[in-house]
Every structure is written in C-alpha cells, then in structure tokens.
Design a protein around this nucleic acid. Sequence first.
DNA 1: TGCATGGCGCCGG
DNA 2: ACCGGCGCCATGC
Length: 168
Amino acid sequence: MSEIFYKSDFPSAIGRLFYIWSEDGSINFLVNDGKNFESFLESLKRKFPRCAVVEMRSDKIENEVTRYLEKKSHGINIRPVFVNGNSLERKIWEAAMTVPYGKVASYKELAAMAGYPNAWRAAGTAVGHNPVMLIVPCHRIIKSDGSIGRFGGGEKVKEFLLNLEQKN
DNA sequence: TGCATGGCGCCGG
DNA sequence: ACCGGCGCCATGC
C-alpha cells in the first residue's frame, strides 16, 4: 500500500459516511461515525508511515453503497482488506460475510460458523470491531431471542438496514 | 498473571 | 415485555 485514500462526509440514506480505500479498489474502513473515522485514520498513518494519505472519493464505492441503500442491488460488491483485527475478529467478520442478503443469524450462530461454538460472547465483541459496515453485514447479526441487538452505527440504522432487506 | 471488559444467552420473576 | 442475575469466552491491559 503506497497510497491510502480517504473520503469524509459522503451523504447517504443512513447519514454521512466515511471511508478509506486503496488504489486496487479494496476498502479498509467504512463507518457513519466521524469520531471513529478520525481515530482509525490516525492509527493507519502510524502503521504505514511511508504511505501518502490522500483525500479522494471512489466512484465505485459510492455507487455500490448508493445502489444498495436504494434497494437497486442485493449487496455491495467491494472487497474488504482488513488492516487490523486479531484472528478471532477476522474469522468472525469472514463468517458474517456469508450471511446472505435478507437473512439474519444470531451472535451464537455466528460464533459457531466461525469455529468458536462457545465463544458467542466474544463474538459479539468482535462484531463490534467490524471496520466496514455494510460490506461485512454485521447488521444481520441479531440476538438469539430475535431482538435486534446493538450496533456501532446506531440501533436505528441497524433497524433501517434490516427493514430495507426485508421488504421484498 | 490476573482481572475487567464487551454489539451475548438463558432463566426467573 | 422488561428487568436482574449468573454464565459464557477471547482479548488487552
């Protein structure tokens, strides 16, 4: 990674989005929380001190996200590249990406899918560290009793996304 | 090394 | 439906 691109305040149906991406088109970070964005960007600069950090929007990312939020697609076709996260977290994120559009899984089920059948509590924590909302569809992970559970980007957003994927 | 921390699960009241 | 309480587990300090 010789250049790191970032974009703040991309307007969307779920609020201002912030994302970080690479020249190969992969995405490293996508949130609707500016504070998390700032701290992640700083940590990235420390981790890759030789990389140039450039403000630059991505047509592909913005188009994919917009189409998804307008219900014109059933998912976002962008490859995430995780620049942080421990082994458990990455396995949890990978497992979450296998939950199809319009479906849900519980945190307990997700832990089992990732190969940690008893670590559902830790799985919840790991999902909370998801760096790329929508791409890793952590909004599809809900509680075992069917209630919605928590969400880094706000529970209203989680509800919005689940509702979006539900209706037809 | 221990211990507090979490986007949880399950049972009772 | 909404709480407490207790159990659960990998991480990080």
